[in-house]
């Protein structure tokens, strides 16, 4: 699988359009779109995980303090598990999501988009201790600010990527009008734009809607005031029967 960050060549080519997507081409020639997550959401996810672990340690510390030295030993073992295995176990068994990542809608995958496995997860989490250098993840922060795929050093070594999860799409609402056939052939992007126009009407002001629809009025050969209704009809026609 050849992996090509879509925005990797950006610095060389000033004309390239900057995008936060990351394209992975499968051997079948299909482009998978991954959306790598940057420093801010990842830092938030880490803070949540840190708080959870801290809370667990606090509660366990209070309970185990009753057991004396034995409890202290158990506490040390618990600390070891939380420190070294918390992320790994969650990532491997919970589709690349620790609780913090789950809350932020993130997940860890391999560079080619496949689910993260034991090896990669272990490497990326063991190398946290390099990312932490000199103190407070400074190296990791700098690394992910500089990398086009927002990778910290552990991600670079393990070949992993933190991406946004794709939520299952919901069926969008489109105005109830009688479907129409477009008077001209439409490419996929153009169809998508017309559907987008119909779907996002609720978020647009009426003046803006008329203005955008007016762009296509000459092409549709209707009066500018009727263009909006015409476009809604075409969108309904493109969508087909519900």
């Amino acid at each position: 699988m050849s992996v090509s960050p879509a925005n990797h060549t950006v610095t060389q080519d000033a004309l390239a359009v900057l995008d936060s997507r990351y394209k992975v081409e499968t051997p079948e020639g299909i482009d998978l779109q991954l959306r790598p997550a940057g420093v801010v959401p990842r830092a938030m996810a880490f803070i949540i995980d840190l708080l959870i672990r801290g809370g667990v340690m606090l509660v366990a510390g209070i309970v185990l303090a009753l057991l004396g030295d034995f409890g202290q030993g158990l506490l040390l073992i618990l600390f070891f598990l939380l420190n070294w295995w918390y992320m790994v176990l969650f990532e491997v068994f919970n589709q690349g999501r620790s609780p913090g990542k789950q809350a932020l809608g993130l997940r860890v995958v391999h560079d080619d988009g496949t689910p993260v496995g034991w090896g990669a997860s272990l490497i990326r989490n063991l190398l946290r201790f390099v990312d932490m250098l000199p103190v407070g993840y400074a190296l990791g922060i700098l690394s992910s600010l500089l990398h086009p795929g927002f990778k910290r050093l552990g991600d670079l070594a393990a070949g992993t990527l933190v991406v946004y999860r794709d939520e299952p799409p919901t069926r969008p609402q489109i105005p109830e009008v009688s479907p129409l056939r477009a008077p001209f052939a439409l490419s996929q992007d153009e169809q998508r734009a017309i559907l987008g126009f119909a779907e996002r009407q609720a978020g647009l002001s009426s003046g803006r809607r008329a203005e955008i629809a007016g762009i296509l009025a000459p092409a549709l050969e209707v009066h500018a005031d009727l263009a909006e209704a015409e476009l809604n009809g075409i969108a309904r026609g493109l969508l087909g029967q519900a």
Partner: peptide, 21 residues
């Protein structure tokens, strides 16, 4: 010079990082 499309707020932040970079 950036791809214009609606993004989630977090993704917009990531695009900002790329713009600054």
């Amino acid at each position: 010079s950036v791809a214009i499309r609606p993004r989630t707020a977090w993704e917009a932040l990531d695009l900002g990082t790329l713009m600054a970079r």
